[in-house]
């Protein structure tokens, strides 16, 4: 399946022929990404799903401009990516909060790095803290917060930059199931209100389908896009997630993704004879 069947809105992120390899521990070359072609539309919510080692995090970090790549080209709104930029901000799997800084200072961190003055960055940080439901916790430090609250701080810090592209690296992978569901619903309702382009890495099929407009399925060794699956579920989805999860379409797409993922796992099982 091609990558350009998302014709509804114009592409904000264009990735062409992206290849990335690095030298592994035993001096062997690991091909993390091979010939990745992908367009992400303006205000699209794109989820990226794949087995571990498929290069999905590497893909995200190249878009973020955090790591260099070997072949190909990444453009944001026509401009080639040369490093991190204020148009993109990232939410990390392990939260990556400064343990010595308060919630307020953590949320304002990115603004501070970009040279926003104290009064303005604190005002913006406070409104974002309110948006993620952490009002009253401004002076707490990350060590005093639960995992779910810590990731709300991480989300607020990213949103405070008012990015065009929000890059999320398995952001809810390190929190418990119930917290994850709450965070998913909140992310949906925030995104429905303040639309932006989201690239969301996950290893959960349910999460990929619940959140995404399309699901990019990646396969491992080398990491490449194996298929892009559209998710034609109606939006807004945050109002009744339960009904959505019981709908035939949701069940069907999730089952399809699992079939494909299982095939990938079997391919890599040496004892199994194909067919």
């Amino acid at each position: 399946m091609g990558s350009d069947d998302y014709g509804k809105e114009r592409a904000l992120i264009e990735i062409r022929g992206l290849g990335k390899s690095f030298v592994g521990q035993d001096n062997e070359t690991v091909e993390a990404l091979r010939d990745v072609n992908l367009d992400v539309g303006e205000n699209e919510f794109l989820t990226v799903l794949g087995p571990s080692g498929c290069g999905k995090t590497t893909l995200l970090k190249t878009i973020a401009g955090l790591i260099p790549w070997n072949d190909g080209d990444i453009r944001i709104d026509g401009t080639p990516v040369r490093g991190p930029g204020p148009d993109r901000s990232m939410v990390f799997q392990n939260f990556a909060l400064l343990p010595w800084a308060t919630v307020l200072d953590n949320v304002a961190f990115g603004l501070r790095m970009r040279g926003v003055g104290r009064a303005e960055r604190e005002e913006r940080a406070r409104s974002l803290i309110a948006m993620v439901g952490l009002s009253g916790f401004e002076t707490k430090r990350p060590g005093e917060l639960s995992g779910g609250m810590q990731q709300r701080v991480g989300l607020a810090r990213a949103l405070a930059m008012r990015p065009r592209v929000l890059l999320m690296d398995e952001p809810f992978g390190a929190v418990d199931e119930q917290t994850r569901r709450l965070l998913q619903e909140e992310l949906l309702s925030i995104w429905e209100e303040h639309r932006m382009t989201v690239v969301f890495i996950t290893h959960s099929m349910e999460e990929a389908v619940l959140l995404g407009d399309r699901v990019v399925l990646m396969s491992a060794r080398p990491g490449r896009i194996s298929e892009i699956v559209p998710v034609p579920l109606e939006r807004p989805r945050s109002s009744d997630v339960g009904a959505l999860e019981r709908s035939g379409q949701y069940v069907e797409i999730t089952a399809y993704l699992w079939d494909r993922l299982r095939d990938m796992h079997e391919e890599h099982r040496p004892s199994k004879v194909a067919g």
Partner: peptide, 29 residues
Amino acid sequence: VDPSLIEMARSFGASERQIWTRVLLPGAL
């Protein structure tokens, strides 16, 4: 100091100097 904090700072556009003053030094204190 957690390397992911350095990566986080870079992703928000921190300069090398800001990484020292805002991440490495407070983390090592």
